[in-house]
Computed example of a mutant assay.
Amino acid sequence: MTILKTVGLAGLAAVMGVSSTIAAAQGDLTRRPTKLPDLVLGTEDNRYHLSHKEYQLETGKSYKLKVISSGQTEYAVKAPGFFNSIFLRKVEAGDMEIKAVSLTELEFEQEGEAEIYFVPIKPGKFEFFAEGLEAKGMAGVFNIK
C-alpha cells in the first residue's frame, strides 16, 4: 500500500471516529424529557382556574406536559400555533399511548389527565386556551426560544 493510501485511510478513520463521537454525544432529542409543571384545569373552588398561564421552552429540547382536568366542566384545550410548531412524540391518556403526527385539541368531558411528550421545533409565542372559556381566564402562552 502506498504512503498516500495509508495516510488517507488513517485520516478517514480519524474523521469517522470524531463524527461518530459527536453523533453519539448528541443522542436522541426525544428521550429523557424535562417535566413541565402540570397544567391543571379547574378546581373545586373555581371551575375556571388555570394553574399556569405561561411556559418557557427551548427549541430542540424534549418536554413532558401533564394536562389534568378537575372535571368541574368540559374543557377543550386548543393551541393551534403551538401544536403546529412541535414534534409530537406521543400522548399518554389512561392506559393508552397515542402516537400521532399532530394534535388539534385535548378534550376532557370529565375528570382525567393526558401527558404530551414533544420537542419544540419553531421559536415564537403561542397561545393556548380552553375553547369558549378564554374570557373567564382560561388562556395562556407557550414562549419558545
Rank of each mutant, 00 (worst) to 15 (best):
A13C: 10
G17W: 06
S20M: 12
R31L: 13
S20T: 15
S19R: 05
L12A: 15
R32I: 08
A25W: 07
T34E: 11
L29G: 01
K35R: 12
T43S: 15
V15A: 15
T43H: 05
L41G: 03
V18N: 08
Q26F: 13
T30W: 00
A24C: 04
T2V: 02
R32G: 03
L4F: 12
L29N: 05
L9V: 11
V40E: 14
T34W: 00
I3N: 08
P37R: 07
Q26T: 14
P37M: 05
P37H: 04
M16E: 03
I22R: 09
P37C: 05
T34D: 04
T6D: 09
V15T: 10
L29S: 11
R32Y: 08
T21P: 00
A13D: 03
S19D: 02
G11A: 15
I22F: 13
G42Y: 00
L29Y: 06
D28V: 06
V40S: 11
T43G: 08
K5T: 14
A10Y: 04
K35L: 06
G42K: 01
A14Q: 01
A23L: 12
V40C: 03
Q26V: 14
V40A: 12
A25R: 09
T6S: 12
V15R: 02
A10V: 13
T21S: 13
I22K: 09
A25N: 11
K5W: 06
L39M: 08
D38L: 00
K5V: 11
Q26L: 14
I3G: 04
L9P: 01
L29F: 06
R31D: 06
D38K: 07
T2Y: 04
I3R: 07
A23Y: 12
L12F: 14
K5S: 14
G27Q: 04
T21H: 13
L9T: 09
G17H: 07
S20P: 01
S20I: 13
S20K: 04
S19P: 00
T6N: 09
T34L: 08
D38R: 07
L39Y: 01
P37Y: 03
R32S: 14
M16P: 00
V15L: 15
T2N: 13
A25D: 07
T2K: 09
L12R: 01
T21Q: 11
G11V: 10
K5M: 08
M16C: 14
L41Q: 03
A23D: 09
A25S: 15
L12Q: 03
G11E: 04
L41I: 05
T21N: 08
R31T: 14
P37D: 03
I22Q: 08
